[in-house]
């Protein structure tokens, strides 16, 4: 996590020592610092992909970083559509990335489940 931090700076103050905060992202336990947003803590841990586009499954990460574009939306402690870029991390917070939704009626799509049962089985398989 430290490797990606800008600690020394020629003009700005040196990055102060801050309390670490432990949180979870997609089941993985990670640490960030107090005053980190979910997005900054994840990026410091080398994680850029925050969700997959609901329909195409294309990977997405932060884009505007100040709450306008909603690209970084994640599920936080069960609440969906939370903007990772303006939400501070908290101890034991559970963050989940956005997933591609099933499109059972699209015959061209091989990578998504065709039925709700298949979807549930796939979901169980992930956990």
């Amino acid at each position: 996590m430290k490797r990606n931090r800008i600690i020394e700076h020629p003009i700005l103050d040196q990055l102060e020592e801050r309390k670490t905060v432990t949180f979870q992202f997609d089941g993985k336990t990670l640490t960030g610092y107090e005053r980190d947003t979910i997005a900054s803590a994840l990026l410091a841990n080398g994680i850029r992909t925050l969700r997959r586009h609901e329909h195409s499954g294309a990977p997405r990460g932060i884009y505007c970083n100040i709450g306008h574009c909603f690209e970084c939306r994640v599920t936080v402690n069960g609440t969906p559509n939370v903007r990772a870029c303006i939400t501070p991390i908290e101890e034991n917070m559970i963050v989940e990335s956005g997933k591609q939704l099933p499109s059972p009626l699209n015959p061209n799509n091989e990578h998504v489940p065709k039925t709700y049962r298949e979807y549930m089985e796939m979901k169980d398989g992930e956990n």
Binding site: N4, R5, I6, I7, H9, L12, L15, D36, T37, A39, S40, L43, A44, R48, T49, L50, H53, A58, P59, R60, G61, I62, Y63, C64, N65, I66, C85
Partner: peptide, 23 residues
């Protein structure tokens, strides 16, 4: 431009100078 790692220049500014994380 929708790939992770592509961001607005303002996003990079905030990540760099406010959060102090390398983009």
């Amino acid at each position: 431009w929708t790939l992770p790692g592509v961001m607005t220049i303002g996003a990079a500014q905030v990540m760099t100078n406010v959060h102090r994380v390398r983009v």
